[in-house]
Amino acid sequence: MPETILSLQEVTKSFGGLKAVKNVSLRISQGSIIGLIGPNGSGKTTLFNLISGVLHPDSGQIFFRGLRIDRMSPHERFKLGMCYAFQIPRIFKGMTVLENTMLSLKEQLGEKILTAPFRRRWFIQEIRNAQQILPLLEDVQLVNSYDKFSSDLSGGQMKLLQLARTIASDAKLFLLDEPGAGLAPSLAKELFKNILKLRNEKGLTFFIIEHRLDLLFDIVDKVYVMNRGEIIAEGKPEEIIEDPKVKEAYLGG
């Protein structure tokens, strides 16, 4: 049985009187692609916010690579090897495409205030990092725009930039919130193919929220379905489609 990379035990989060996430428990094994679906407002994004550290749960526990992380800050969780791409892309508008992408590489010597002024100390690493992200920006056709301020990109390009930045992070677990939304159909298809390739070649783990079920079901090993903050079903795509509860809540009868 493959190793567990992420597990949640009875995680709950309320906003005032609204229980956005109710007693959610799940277990994701390393190297799998897991889908998360459910109607709008069912708590999917909130669940990702809890895993990544944007929010802290009211109760319950979250374990990542064997460590309890639910009280850790987002930057510590990133360093342990997870990276989150938001539903609405959060890119750094006053920074160029290149700067946005370079930012997510780990352990940069030039990020220390005492080494930053001395170029020689981080020059080589910087060149290597740039070479490393070049193919990623090629994949999303942003190489020629590397020096553009990202506020000048189109909505779709912002989404792609956020994806490239997320992949560049060298994380083990990727949380992707509706990565296909806002992309042209051919691009979305390409993206899901790339995700599958990354998993197969590098053993990376993906947890993906997506409404485009045709794309999602092609690549996932397992799907969780949420409704009103609860997980109402889990299983292989073909099992999920047949589930009467899922049909009622999400697939529309």
Partner: peptide, 28 residues
Amino acid sequence: RIVNSPYGRVIKSIRDDELASQLLGKDV
């Protein structure tokens, strides 16, 4: 020198979106 370096990138990212910066591992 400090600004034209990876350090400069980090502080600009904090300026633009503090939370997103934290989610990329930056100790704001």
